[in-house]
Simulated assay, not measured.
Amino acid sequence: MKKHIMRIMSRDDWKTKARFIKGRIDAFSRIFKSRKYEAPDDLFFAIEDLPLMGKEYWFLHFCTPGSRQQAILTFGRALDDVKVNRTNVNTRTKRAFDMLLSGIDCASVCWLYCEKKGKIVAIDSGVNLTLEGGAGKKMLKATGKTGTASIIGKYPHYHVQLKKGNKILLNAKVKPTNAGNPFEIIHMLNPPVLRGLGAEMVNYYFDFEGKIGGKNTSGRAYLQKVVAAMPLAPWNWVRIYFKSGASLDFFAAKTLEGSQQGIRVACVCFLEYKGKRIKLGCPRLESWLEGKERRWLLHAKGLYLALSSYAMHGFVMRSKTKFCYDEFLVEVKDFAAKINGKEITIDDVGAGCGIVEDAYGYLF
Results as ranks from 00 to 15, higher is better:
residue 168 I to G: 00
residue 217 T to H: 04
residue 225 K to N: 01
residue 291 G to P: 02
residue 268 V to S: 14
residue 161 Q to W: 00
residue 205 Y to I: 00
residue 243 K to C: 00
residue 249 D to A: 10
residue 245 G to T: 05
residue 169 L to F: 15
residue 275 G to S: 05
residue 202 V to Q: 08
residue 273 Y to N: 02
residue 169 L to Q: 06
residue 273 Y to Q: 03
residue 263 I to P: 01
residue 245 G to N: 05
residue 282 C to F: 08
residue 189 L to G: 01
residue 271 L to V: 03
residue 187 H to E: 12
residue 167 K to T: 14
residue 273 Y to P: 02
residue 241 Y to P: 00
residue 196 G to M: 00
residue 175 K to T: 13
residue 296 W to S: 00
residue 234 P to V: 08
residue 276 K to W: 02
residue 246 A to F: 01
residue 255 T to Y: 13
residue 237 W to A: 11
residue 282 C to A: 13
residue 229 A to C: 15
residue 298 L to T: 02
residue 195 R to Y: 11
residue 219 G to V: 05
residue 266 A to W: 12
residue 161 Q to A: 13
residue 239 R to V: 07
residue 281 G to N: 04
residue 276 K to S: 09
residue 292 K to H: 09
residue 221 A to D: 04
residue 282 C to W: 04
residue 180 G to I: 05
residue 261 Q to W: 10
residue 256 L to R: 11
residue 254 K to H: 09
residue 166 N to H: 11
residue 213 G to T: 05
residue 163 K to I: 01
residue 274 K to R: 13
residue 187 H to K: 12
residue 215 K to T: 14
residue 288 W to M: 03
residue 218 S to A: 13
residue 251 F to Q: 07
residue 193 V to N: 12
residue 165 G to V: 07
residue 266 A to T: 07
residue 293 E to L: 02
residue 254 K to D: 01
residue 259 S to Y: 14
residue 232 L to G: 04
residue 277 R to L: 10
residue 246 A to V: 04
residue 212 I to T: 08
residue 200 E to D: 02
residue 226 V to K: 00
residue 196 G to S: 02
residue 196 G to Y: 06
residue 298 L to R: 03
residue 287 S to Q: 13
residue 207 D to Q: 12
residue 182 P to S: 07
residue 174 V to L: 10
residue 295 R to N: 05
residue 255 T to A: 14
residue 294 R to N: 01
residue 181 N to W: 10
residue 183 F to W: 15
residue 263 I to Y: 14
residue 202 V to T: 12
